[in-house]
Design a binder for these strands. Structure first.
Length: 216
DNA sequence: CAGTGGATGCTCT
DNA sequence: GAGCATCCACTGT
């Protein structure tokens, strides 16, 4: 099962360039699953993302380039970082052509690089929960508003190509109240590191209780 | 394991 | 002033 094999640390594929991000969110979002996100060498494999764009009432770019959403209308290949619920940071990858207001929210990683630093920042939670959520992964990678607008093409933030092929699943986005039916959340099939299971992904993050009771 | 509620501050109406 | 692209602790099965 290729999608369940972890990315091999040490054999890091090339960093992605502008041409990867300069495409519609509909393409970039699923293509980001399986790629490696790093901040100062700490991070892991992207296992869950969501797509947002200007014509989408759930998107911060829906009302145009407001001060908060300005970065979403900037050049692709940059980070859009915003504060969520007054206490968390969430990171997006700006994509598509400049001015389109398209971005992909990174929602969960499979932790692979800098595990000790992540654990220290996250207060010793289980590995599975280190980066299982948009607020959790920014905490683990020390991503905050000082990186809003920062490039991914050079500098401390980087996205690297998929080390191994992946199998995708999709479903409705999480935590929104508008456009709730759009299946714009994408994940790595069978990954235990997603923020919550994908409906219909039988190999998803929660092991069947019968198997769990048997001790595996 | 499901459901609930509190924390906390910014953005936009 | 309302509403969050969330997380955690705590409740009760």
């Amino acid at each position: 099962m290729p999608s369940s094999e972890p990315a091999a640390p040490g054999a890091l594929p090339p960093r992605l360039g502008r041409e990867f991000f300069d495409r519609p969110a509909a393409e970039v979002a699923p293509d980001l699953v399986g790629c490696i996100l790093l901040h100062e060498g700490v991070g892991g494999r992207i296992v869950e993302v969501e797509r947002y764009e200007q014509g989408d009432a759930a998107s911060h770019s829906f009302r145009g380039p407001t001060p908060r959403a300005a970065v979403m209308f900037g050049p692709p290949g940059h980070a859009y970082v915003y504060r969520s619920y007054g206490m968390h940071w969430c990171m997006n990858v700006v994509c598509d052509g400049e001015g389109t207001g398209s971005a992909v929210l990174v929602r969960a990683l499979e932790p692979l690089y800098g595990l000790e630093r992540m654990r220290a920042r996250r207060g010793g939670v289980p590995n599975r929960e280190l980066c299982a959520g948009p607020g959790r992964l920014t905490q683990a990678l020390a991503i905050d508003d000082t990186l809003n607008g920062a490039p991914l093409l050079a500098g401390p933030l980087a996205v690297h190509a998929r080390p191994v092929p992946v199998e995708l699943v999709s479903g409705p986005r999480v935590g929104i109240s508008r456009e709730v039916e759009r299946p714009w959340r994408f994940g790595l099939a069978g990954s235990p590191f997603v923020s919550r299971p994908f409906p219909g992904d039988r190999t998803g993050s929660r092991r069947p209780s019968a198997a769990r009771a048997r001790g595996r």
